[in-house]
Structure formats: structure tokens, C-alpha cells
Amino acid sequence: MKNRSTLFWRLCWIGAALLCVLTFTPVVIPSGHFTPFVAGMPRTIWTGILVYIGLVLLTLAANIVYKERDIDGGADK
């Protein structure tokens, strides 16, 4: 169970890293280009929103994967 959790966690990490790398390529920020428009938005905005949503979903997935690793840390109580 722990191995599976670790694998899912790594997949989330890889997914987040790939999305971040993708952001800095011409797919999201093509210099001087703003087409195609989707839902009335220029390319950098709609692709940027998609990347952002992807990152939030991966955060959610990572959150679920971490369920079995819960600890009760925190500040001195």
C-alpha cells in the first residue's frame, strides 16, 4: 500500500513539474502570438488557466495520496 502511495505521489510530482515546464514553452507563452482565442480569451490566458487548474487538481491528488502518511506535527503545544 505504501509503495503504491509513493508511486502515485511521484506521478503527481512529475505531472506538476511537466506542467510548470510546459508553461515556459511557446505552447503557453508564444512570443507575440495570441491566437487561437478560446471562450473569448487569448492563448496565454486560456492555456494559463488550464495549466493552473491542472496544478490545483494535482495538488488535490497529492493530498489524497498523502492520506496514509499523516503525522501530527506542528508547533510546540
Binding site: V28, G48, V56
Partner: peptide, 10 residues
């Protein structure tokens, strides 16, 4: 948007 939103998402 890239400057702040993507950085915040990460």
C-alpha cells in the same frame, strides 16, 4: 497571469 497565477499554483 503566468507571473503570478502559475507560480501560485505551483
Amino acid at each position: 497571469w503566468i507571473f503570478l497565477a502559475i507560480s501560485d499554483g505551483a
